[in-house]
């Protein structure tokens, strides 16, 4: 009873796509994410105005014909900043989570699979990171390296590594115990085969869920750094920065902070719906129906 690895993978891939399309919320999520990515890539073509151009006389203008979503405290066009902000915010969120996911799951699965002293070492190191107040770590990184988009990404990525490592490790441990893996092992399957065929797809489902959740965290972290004045730096527009600087006008011009807030909510929603959809499609055993 040997299974051909290639055919399994191919058929899985088709199944995944079929299952994903059936999931309406997942498709909605994919659409939202697509819109954001398009906005980010084609920002210069889509934005009606220069996002950095100030008109102090038009400051805090409510939405009108000229400023479709209003103007901010410098009289900059909020719509244009929102579109350009998609760039900075998506870059920060996606790259920091990608770095965290890559390094974290590598470390975690290594720890989980190899076990023993290596497991102990890696996980104690992760504990060290987790035990450290998270904003403190970010502030130290930004203070040492200076504020800016790249260092913001780094500060957030470092913080996400231990979470991914933990998730990856526990997923690996759990899967190792599962009946089908035990069965495969007892049937004499090679370790590498087990990793590729059984562990990865299962493991990916969990990670996708976590990654989509951590995108939200990454955006929250960026907003926390912006709140302290250490996030993405002007004149670059980022959603979190827009909220942080607009929050003082909550009574006089609430649209300045509310509009980027809605953008963040939509982005998080999109990524999570997409993540859920992918998870359900990747791992038919889990989730709905």
């Amino acid at each position: 009873m040997t299974v051909d690895a290639t055919t399994t993978t191919r058929s899985t891939r088709n199944d995944v796509w079929r299952r994903f399309r059936r999931n309406h919320l997942g498709v909605v999520g994919a659409l939202i994410v697509m819109v954001l990515v398009i906005a980010a890539i084609f920002a210069p073509l889509l934005a009606p105005k220069d996002p950095a151009e100030q008109d102090l006389r038009a400051r805090r203008t409510a939405p009108n014909a000229e400023y479709v979503l209003g103007a901010d405290e410098f009289g900059r066009d909020i719509l244009s900043r929102l579109i350009y902000g998609a760039r900075a915010s998506l870059t920060v969120a996606v790259s920091s989570v990608a770095i965290g996911l890559l390094l974290g799951s590598l470390l975690g699965s290594l720890a989980g699979y190899v076990g023993g002293w290596l497991d102990g070492l890696i996980m104690r190191l992760m504990d060290l990171f987790l035990a450290f107040p998270y904003l403190l770590l970010a502030i130290i990184i930004v203070s040492a390296l200076g504020a800016g988009t790249f260092n913001t990404i780094l500060a957030i990525a470092v913080w996400t590594i231990p979470a991914f490592a933990r998730v990856a490790r526990s997923a690996v441990l759990q899967i190792k115990e599962r009946d089908f893996v035990t069965a495969a092992l007892s049937l004499g399957a090679k370790e590498a085969r087990i990793m590729g065929v059984h562990l990865l797809p299962n493991f990916a489902a969990t990670l996708v869920v976590y990654a989509s959740l951590y995108l939200a965290y990454a955006i929250l972290m960026e907003s926390a750094l912006s709140f302290l004045g250490l996030g993405v730096q002007p004149p670059t527009a980022s959603w979190a920065g827009m909220i942080a600087s607009g929050r003082n006008y909550v009574t006089s011009a609430p649209h300045i902070a509310t509009i980027p807030g809605i953008a963040i909510a939509l982005a998080v929603l999109g990524f999570n719906l997409l993540g859920d959809g992918l998870r359900d499609a990747l791992d038919p055993r889990s989730g709905k129906r």
Partner: peptide, 25 residues
């Protein structure tokens, strides 16, 4: 101060001067 720095950056850009802002705590 932060807002003024951003505005100065824009005023200088209008006359062709690039201004890099290094915000630290």
């Amino acid at each position: 101060d932060r807002e003024i720095a951003e505005t100065l950056q824009e005023f200088l850009r209008q006359v062709g001067i690039a201004m890099n802002l290094d915000f630290f705590e």
